[in-house]
């Protein structure tokens, strides 16, 4: 069997199946990771002393623990205390926790960069704190957080491969299975790698389009300045 047949007749069809699982993992995790990130950041910034401490602790613990260990805890550990999750669910929960913790750091940074006057002006118009946060602070903060959040999204794409370590046969796992079966390793993992590169590159392009789409005169300038 030549390389060409191997890649196109055997490897790519198998990878396609894995890719579908990878995409499912990402699609199930990313939105909740964003919501969790917003919640944790808002809790740290606007919550009372107890809530903000809990949020801070959460970020510290999740960032300090390797994601792979977190997945082991969720998939292999939880059954010992009576909670059994499917591998897919465990992976998604792990990704949400991890993604949320890192996202919250960018969002918090962006929240801190919004000047006090915005909140004061909103309250002076009769908005409650919650209304002010939702309608005035967050729309600005999220725009500023886009570069960081998109970085985390790219990390999510790459680290979704760790789901394979808890038996979810996603893209990397599909590649590994084919490689082991045919003893063709270098080519297989190069192709797998290229698929990830394509995903990452598409995301990068999509993010820059999104950024342009939601950009507001004046604010994007301050974003790039803050990034420096």
């Amino acid at each position: 069997m030549d390389q060409f047949t191997f890649i196109f007749d055997i490897l790519l069809p198998a990878l396609m199946q894995g890719l579908v699982i990878t995409l499912q993992l990402i699609v199930c995790s990313a939105p909740f990771g964003l919501v969790l990130g917003i919640g944790v950041a808002a809790g740290r910034q606007y919550g009372g002393p107890i809530l903000s401490r809990i949020c801070k602790m959460f970020v510290l613990l999740i960032k300090g623990t390797p994601l792979l260990l977190l997945l082991f805890i969720l998939y292999f550990g939880l059954p010992s205390i009576g909670i059994t999750l499917t591998a897919f669910t465990a992976a998604v929960i792990g990704f949400i926790l991890c993604n949320g913790a890192y996202n919250s750091e960018y969002i918090r940074g962006a929240l801190l960069s919004i000047k006090d006057g915005q909140m004061i002006a909103a309250q002076a118009l009769g908005m409650t704190r919650a209304q002010a946060i939702r309608n005035v602070i967050l729309p600005q903060a999220l725009r500023r957080a886009i570069p960081g959040l998109s970085n985390e999204f790219i990390y999510l794409i790459k680290y979704s491969s760790l789901a394979y370590m808890i038996t979810v046969v996603e893209l990397s796992g599909a590649g590994k299975n084919v490689a082991t079966k045919y003893f063709i390793y270098t080519e297989t993992f190069m192709v797998v790698g290229i698929v990830y590169l394509v995903l990452v590159t598409i995301t990068t392009v999509a993010v820059s389009i999104l950024e342009k789409h939601v950009s507001v005169p004046g604010t994007s300038r301050s974003t790039s300045a803050a990034q420096m």
């Binding site: 000047k115 006057g117 915005q118 002006a121 309250q123 002076a124 118009l125 009769g126 005035v136 725009r143």
Partner: peptide, 23 residues
């Protein structure tokens, strides 16, 4: 919480405008 009602009735204009920058 009724303060939000009063704040509607009392407008305020600030030295640095405090316009909402994203709107």
């Amino acid at each position: 919480t009724r303060i939000n009602y009063f704040r509607q009735k009392i407008g305020m204009v600030f030295q640095n405008y405090y316009l909402f920058d994203h709107l």
